[in-house]
Simulated scan of single mutants.
Amino acid sequence: MTTEDVKLERVLQGATEVFLQQGYTAATTDMIQKSAGVSKATVYTRYPNKQALFTAVIERQCKLLTHNIIQCLPQSKDILSTLTDIGTRYLTLLLSKEGLALYRTIVAETPRFPELGRIFYQSGPKVVLDQVTKYITQAANEGQLAVQQVGARNAAVLFLSLLRGESQLQCVTHPDFHPTEVLIEEWVNQAIITFRQAFFVGDPNA
């Protein structure tokens, strides 16, 4: 990495810490400069205002949070193993400290800055949905899933919604609650049981 690349990464890391801790409104460029350990000139050279910097933070965090999910699509011909891997990675990232902080910040700021919400959706949730849809389409073409009545995309939406519903609600409404690996595994299994009953063809364990 060049010196400029290092400085840019420090700005983004510092901005991420400040935005996720303070929220968009309370965050200031002075806080970000101090957190990043760079000059104001360095911050403003790359990002002319706070909104531009926040947009970069959203895109960066979404990329980090979706990377692991995309990596496992598909790694196995066994649909149960693949869906379990997807579900576990998805919830682990979604319910992480950083994932929840980003979600809370976006929900709080989107009514005043709708474009930030659109950027978040396009950079994060839509990327995951597109990849899961692609996998479900492939599984359906191979005769493992029957999704003709709803379509592959709606089946993907339902799977991700089954994973996210109760788990994310509990974590968002209870800031001090941190789910264990065992609980995440339970949530994933519950989602897969429901999805399996709706869309699996035959007995996947046969």
Score class of each variant (00 low, 15 high):
Q149R: 11
D130P: 11
Q51G: 00
T137E: 15
T55E: 15
D130F: 13
A52T: 09
R196T: 12
L12C: 06
G124K: 02
G151E: 05
K97W: 05
P179G: 04
G151D: 05
K40I: 02
F19H: 01
T55K: 13
S81N: 08
K50Q: 08
E181M: 08
D78W: 10
V201K: 10
V201T: 12
A15D: 07
A198L: 15
L129H: 11
G87Y: 07
M31P: 00
L116M: 15
W187R: 14
D30G: 01
L95E: 00
T133W: 10
I106D: 06
A156V: 03
T66H: 03
K40A: 12
K50E: 08
V43L: 15
C171I: 03
V188A: 06
Q51T: 07
I184T: 04
Y90L: 01
A52I: 01
G165F: 10
S76I: 05
A146E: 15
Q131F: 04
P114I: 10
K50S: 07
A139H: 10
K50M: 10
I58G: 01
A140Y: 08
V132N: 00
E166M: 08
P204Y: 09
L93R: 14
T88M: 12
F200E: 06
K7H: 02
V147C: 14
S123E: 11
D130W: 05
V43S: 02
G37T: 07
L169Y: 13
E17W: 01
I79H: 08
V128K: 06
P111K: 08
A101Q: 15
G117I: 13
S76Y: 11
S161L: 09
T2F: 14
F54T: 02
A155D: 02
S167N: 07
